[in-house]
Each structure stands twice: as C-alpha cells, then as structure tokens.
C-alpha cells in the first residue's frame, strides 16, 4: 500500500518536475512541490491510519449553525 502510494506520487512528480527543472521555473516547481508533498503526507497518513482532522468537520463547526439559522429563517 505504502509502496503503491509512493510509486504513484513518483509518477506524478515525473510527469512535470523534470521539464520544470530544465526550464528553470522555480516558482512553478515550488508550488507544485508544496501541493505534491501535502498530497503525499495526507496519503501516507491515510495509509498509516493517522487521525487527520476532516475539513468537513471544520466547515460543519462554522457553517452548521449558519445553515440551521437559514433553515429556521426560510424553511
């Protein structure tokens, strides 16, 4: 599983990174690297069953009451 994830991410990196490196587009490379490593971290966390807070939960905390209020208001 972990090997699979790493392999997948290597393929993703291989798609673009070498070309960016050659063209010396560091900015692109940096942004891509950040997204890439975030993805890798999250995926590995998934593989290791780490408790990562769900963004849906955070949204629910803020917007659950809003929705409730709206529902009461109109529905």
């Amino acid at each position: 599983m972990i090997a699979l994830i790493i392999l997948a991410f290597l393929v993703i990196a291989y798609l673009d990174a070498p070309a960016l490196w050659q063209k010396k587009e560091w900015r692109e490379l940096a942004v891509m690297g950040i997204v890439w490593s975030l993805g890798l971290a999250l995926s590995l966390g998934l593989a290791f069953h780490l408790p990562v807070p769900s963004p849906a939960k955070m949204l629910a905390r803020f917007f659950g009451p809003v929705t409730l209020w709206l529902t009461r208001l109109i529905g």
Binding site: I12, L15, L20, V31, M32, V35, W36, G39, S43
Partner: peptide
C-alpha cells in the same frame, strides 16, 4: 499544468 496531477492526488 504542472499543478494538475499533484492537486488530483491531494
């Protein structure tokens, strides 16, 4: 373009 694949994975 370089962002698409990592974004998809994420």
């Amino acid at each position: 373009r370089p962002l698409v694949a990592p974004l998809g994975a994420l």
